[in-house]
């Protein structure tokens, strides 16, 4: 436990001159181009952007699942060469092992590290207690609600004491109420563990509410369009989401993303050959109508 609840922040993520292209029969398709991001130790940073902009691609590259075509990804100065327990990841689809109980899921990373059974059982119980899940340690994931599954997913990713936590739209499949509770839980854990978080979402409110800083990405091929610091005080309350400060940030981010979404959609509309659309819009541009 002592190493999990470290006192000094850790996990400095740096992504420099990053680009990533997929090979296809028609030649390489650029998913992300010319991107620089960084997450300071202990910082909570979100990436938002229109769907298909490559934000998950970027996250997967930091996790080590994808190799950049150009540029490098480093964590605390060490180059990322593949997935590792130093970078915990939480997936949208929960991705708990269905054949393992809640506790066995949480223990998995410790088991991989070779920790003896009794020791990792104790560690897993403590962590499950922090997330209010001790009563469910013997349940199989199938029996849990979406919110509980994702809590297990987060606890499992944190159990090995990673330097950074990467989350790929982790609350996308949850209902609104559960989502809010999960955001609180994540905030609490992050503040306790003092690790850096890179959070991908398409939900602007969520990004503002959680983050110290938000990166907004352009439509495909994705790159960083803007970097917005979120100066809201912590601890943050739900009520803050009605404050003028919050709403101003929201408006700014909204318009940034809308521009990019329209660009992405405009492309698609042309692709589908929907030329008739402009007639129906009576001369207004698509942007005006939406």
């Amino acid at each position: 436990m002592s190493e999990i609840l470290a006192s000094t922040p850790k996990g400095h993520i740096e992504v420099r001159n990053f680009s990533l292209a997929y090979e296809t029969i028609e030649g390489p398709v650029q998913a992300v181009t010319d991107t620089q991001i960084h997450v300071k130790p202990g910082e909570f940073v979100s990436i938002v952007g229109p769907s298909g902009c490559g934000k998950s691609t970027l996250l997967n590259a930091v996790a080590g699942f994808l190799k950049p075509t150009t540029g490098i990804v480093t964590v605390d100065g060490e180059r990322v060469n593949g997935p590792s327990a130093e970078r915990g990841m939480v997936f949208q689809q929960y991705s708990l092992f269905p054949w393992k109980t809640v506790r066995e899921n949480v223990e998995f990373g410790l088991k991989m590290r070779g920790m003896p059974r009794s020791q990792r059982e104790r560690a897993a119980r403590t962590l499950l207690g922090l997330a209010g899940l001790e009563a469910f340690e013997k349940h199989y994931p199938e029996k849990l609600s979406g919110g509980m599954k994702q809590r297990v997913g987060i606890v499992r990713a944190l159990a090995t004491g990673p330097k950074v936590l990467l989350l790929d739209e982790p609350f996308g499949a949850l209902d609104a109420q559960t989502r809010v509770i999960m955001q609180q839980i994540l905030t609490n854990m992050w503040q306790r563990l003092k690790i850096s978080v890179l959070f991908v979402t398409h939900d602007i409110d969520e990004a503002i509410f959680l983050s110290d800083r938000v990166y907004c990405m352009t439509a495909r091929p994705g790159s960083i369009k803007a970097e917005i610091p979120i100066p809201l005080e912590r601890p943050r309350q739900q009520s803050m989401m009605m404050s003028s400060e919050f709403l101003a940030l929201r408006r700014g981010l909204m318009s940034l993303i809308r521009e990019e979404s329209l660009k992405a959609m405009g492309g698609e509309i042309n692709d589908m050959g929907m030329q008739g659309l402009s007639i129906e819009l009576h001369g207004h541009s698509l942007a005006d109508v939406i």
């Binding site: 915990g88 092992f97 991989m112 090995t160």
Partner: peptide, 20 residues
């Protein structure tokens, strides 16, 4: 995704085979 989850938790080839 389960394979990737295991990799992120430090599982190597043999463990992934046995555990996933």
């Amino acid at each position: 995704v389960l394979v990737r989850a295991a990799q992120c938790l430090g599982a190597r080839e043999r463990s992934i085979f046995r555990e996933v």
